Amino acid sequence: MFKFKTPSSETLEIMSEVAKGNIEKDYEKSCIEQIRDLTDKEYAKVTSSGNNSIFIALSAVEGDVIIPDQGGWHGFKQIARFLNKNIITIKTDSGLINTDYLDELEIPDSSALIFTSFAGYCGEQDIKAITKYCKSNDILTIEDASAGVGDKKDLLGRHSDIILASTGSPKIINVGEGGFISTDDEEIFKKTSLPQKLSKTSQIVCSGIDNEIQNVKNNLELTLNATDYVKKHIPNTLHANKRGINVIIPHDNAKAICWDLKKTLTTQKSGFITTCPNYNRVKQKAICIEIKNLDYACLRKEKLDMIIEEVSSQLQV
Rank of each mutant, 00 (worst) to 15 (best):
D26L: 05
E124L: 07
I87T: 07
L238Y: 06
I273Q: 14
D154K: 15
F82S: 11
G168I: 10
Q316T: 14
K200R: 11
I163A: 12
E62M: 01
V149C: 12
T99H: 05
K77H: 06
S30I: 03
F180V: 01
G176N: 02
V311Q: 04
Y279V: 14
F115Y: 09
D185I: 03
A60L: 02
G120D: 05
E24I: 14
T39N: 06
K283F: 04
H74E: 13
L38V: 03
L294G: 13
C206M: 00
N280V: 00
T116R: 11
W73N: 14
T192K: 03
R281C: 08
E212Q: 08
P235F: 07
Q284I: 11
K217V: 12
I204Q: 08
Q214E: 15
H159I: 11
S169K: 07
N278P: 01
T99N: 13
I291E: 10
C288Y: 02
N22V: 01
D151K: 12
I32R: 03
I248M: 11
G179H: 04
L102V: 12
I56F: 00
K20E: 15
N98K: 14
T266A: 09
W73L: 13
D109W: 04
M15Q: 13
F55G: 11
K269V: 02
C276D: 09
W259C: 11
A254K: 06
S110K: 11
L299T: 07
I172N: 13
Q78D: 09
K242S: 14
E62K: 14
G208F: 01
L198N: 14
C122P: 01
T264A: 05
N236W: 00
K152S: 13
S48H: 02
I114C: 03
Y279I: 10
A256L: 12
V317Q: 14
V230N: 08
G72A: 07
P7G: 09
F189E: 09
V61L: 00
G120N: 10
C288R: 07
S199F: 03
N174F: 05
K25N: 06
L83F: 00
T267K: 08
Q70E: 15
H251C: 13
Q70G: 02
F115I: 04
I213S: 07
L299G: 10
I87S: 10
V61S: 12
T141V: 12
K91T: 13
G157E: 05
S53M: 00
N137P: 03
D37E: 15
K29H: 06
D144Y: 04
I308P: 00
D93T: 07
K262A: 11
L155I: 15
P108N: 15
A254S: 15
E143D: 14
F180T: 04
D109R: 09
G150A: 10
G21N: 05
C31Y: 01
N225K: 11
D144W: 02
G75M: 10
K5R: 15
I87E: 13
E13P: 00
S16Q: 15
Q125T: 14
I97F: 01
T167N: 13
K132A: 08
T223W: 00
N225A: 15
A226E: 02
V230A: 07
I14Y: 00
D295H: 15
S202P: 01
K255Q: 14
V61F: 05
